[in-house]
Nucleic acid binder design. Structure first.
Lengths: 138, 138
DNA sequence: CTATTAGTCTATCTTTTTTATAGGTTTTAT
DNA sequence: ATAAAACCTATAAAAAAGATAGACTAATAG
């Protein structure tokens, strides 16, 4: 499961994407709209900003905004940033690989092989779907 | 990521599957072979037994054994038992569903839709691949 | 130039989950 | 009887998740 942090990030990003035309959006507005603790959200948005995904403006008329169009922000990027590995096992993670401590040889480990396939099938979606794809429909 | 508990369970089950012909297998043998804390493993095997996946025999000549042939034990079942939901969000989980607290209507939530697809693609593999498919190859 | 607004930064705290251990109990084979 | 081995319950230790606090900095309006 994704952490609350990542779940909140997605909802916040959706709100920002749905209001791109309105200039910077207040943290407090997002918090209220999406039912998220404002202080917790503050940290999350800051992390997204430090990763170059969001920009911000201080003072009156300030707030947060997307640095790129929604269709250029892949879901996988957000998950990896806030939650870490997408793979189910460290030994099949592309970005957070760790050697398996419990098997002799990963090259012939069937678990490794199957979990690699699960990772691929998840990535096929998460690398290609973007913020644009998760906006409210209808 | 799967918990250590679930990872250990898979490795233990593989060992049991690869030794089905040898009668009951000692916890201590599995622990040594797979490099797992024996006491931790004890709890895990007990849980698998209580779920009907393993059987056991006490006293001399005792140990654990599979209750069904490896090809009838789906990976999804093990994960759900020890780790809980396979889905990335509570609101798309089939077995551990919880309503989304952060969106107005799941029926039109794009995040819900995409994460549902990720769940389906993972389940397509995890429901169909069994213990037999993760035995050491070659 | 000062008051207000709003993000920035860092630290801490609480709770929950994960991982692991301890130690006695029961069952079974010999 | 004895020894082997699983059973059971409790607890502890460590890590991660979730949340909050408060002082600081930058921008804007007047």
């Amino acid at each position: 499961m994704l952490s609350k942090k990542t779940q909140y990030a997605f909802h916040a990003l959706v709100h920002l994407a749905e209001n791109v035309d309105k200039g910077p959006i207040l943290i407090s507005e997002i918090a209220q709209e999406k039912n998220i603790s404002i202080k917790f959200l503050e940290n999350i948005l800051l992390e997204l900003k430090n990763a170059g995904i969001l920009g911000s403006k201080k003072g009156k008329g300030g707030g947060y905004y997307l640095m790129r169009p929604p269709k250029e922000i892949a879901l996988a990027k957000i998950i990896r940033l806030l939650d870490g590995p997408i793979a189910l096992l460290p030994c099949v993670s592309l970005n957070y690989y760790e050697r398996c401590e419990n098997c002799r040889d990963e090259a012939v480990c069937g678990l490794n092989e199957v979990m690699g396939k699960v990772r691929d099938s998840a990535l096929k979606i998460l690398e290609n779907k973007t913020l644009k794809d998760i906006l409210t429909r209808g």
